[in-house]
């Protein structure tokens, strides 16, 4: 079984639904330790992406991801826009013109995304950012030849919740210093949602 452009599309379309649903939740997380727009940003960006997906046709996941990255880059804004934009553009770049993507290739592509995120945002593990979900998620995918998606979902959930105890060092939440402790990082939460939905799609095709 493989991850095709249809699966990629399904992932993003479902993600849009999820971000619309969780718009207020993500914004509330951001109100606690940021400026309160994260859910609004994600919902706006993915809504635009969804519109694009409704009309455009893609032959490769690479093209789809690159385009998705461009839309997110120009519609999300804030800190998360360049980050999620970069992530998809990098993944697209890594996949070249493959029509079907194996689990290893997908993991490798997402590793490139992570490298892009690190380069762009200069954050490190435990800075209380989306990286606190991304880093363990990608590690897990790369270290498990056969992925137990339930395990994976459990892991990202744990890591997302783990940001609660951290003091922020990057992003707006860092201005709060110690007062940032006790709240889930909004970007970690949106990344958690992204990985859970990826797991669902992969499960569906038995990846």
């Amino acid at each position: 079984m493989a991850f095709t452009v249809d699966e990629a599309k399904l992932w993003l379309i479902n993600l849009n639904k999820i971000y619309q649903q969780e718009k207020m939740y993500l914004s509330e997380l951001d109100q606690a330790i940021g400026d309160g727009d994260h859910g609004i940003n994600m919902a706006r960006g993915f809504n635009e992406l969804n519109k694009k997906l409704e009309t455009a046709e893609y032959h490769t996941t690479a093209d789809l991801f690159k385009d998705a990255g461009m839309v997110l880059l120009s519609k999300v804004g804030g800190a998360s826009g360049p980050l999620y934009g970069t992530a998809f553009i990098k993944a697209g770049g890594a996949l070249k013109d493959k029509e079907e993507v194996t689990k290893e290739e997908l993991a490798a592509a997402l590793f490139e995304s992570l490298e892009g995120l690190k380069l762009r945002g200069k954050a490190r593990l435990e800075d209380k950012t989306m990286l606190d979900v991304w880093i363990p998620a990608i590690e897990f995918l790369q270290n498990h030849p056969k992925v137990d998606w339930d395990e994976f979902k459990k892991l990202v959930k744990e890591k997302m919740e783990g940001t609660k105890k951290l003091e922020a060092k990057k992003g707006r939440a860092s201005y709060l210093g110690i007062r940032s402790v006790g709240h889930i990082d909004p970007g970690a939460a949106s990344s958690y949602l992204l990985f859970v939905e990826l797991a669902r799609v992969c499960e569906g095709v038995g990846l």
């Binding site: 400026d35 309160g36 727009d37 609004i40 940003n41 706006r44 880059l73 120009s74 519609k75 999300v76 804004g77 804030g78 800190a79 826009g81 360049p82």
Partner: peptide
Amino acid sequence: AGEVFTSPTPDQ
């Protein structure tokens, strides 16, 4: 001008 309290995007 970005969205409210949201940095403008690179294209803009």
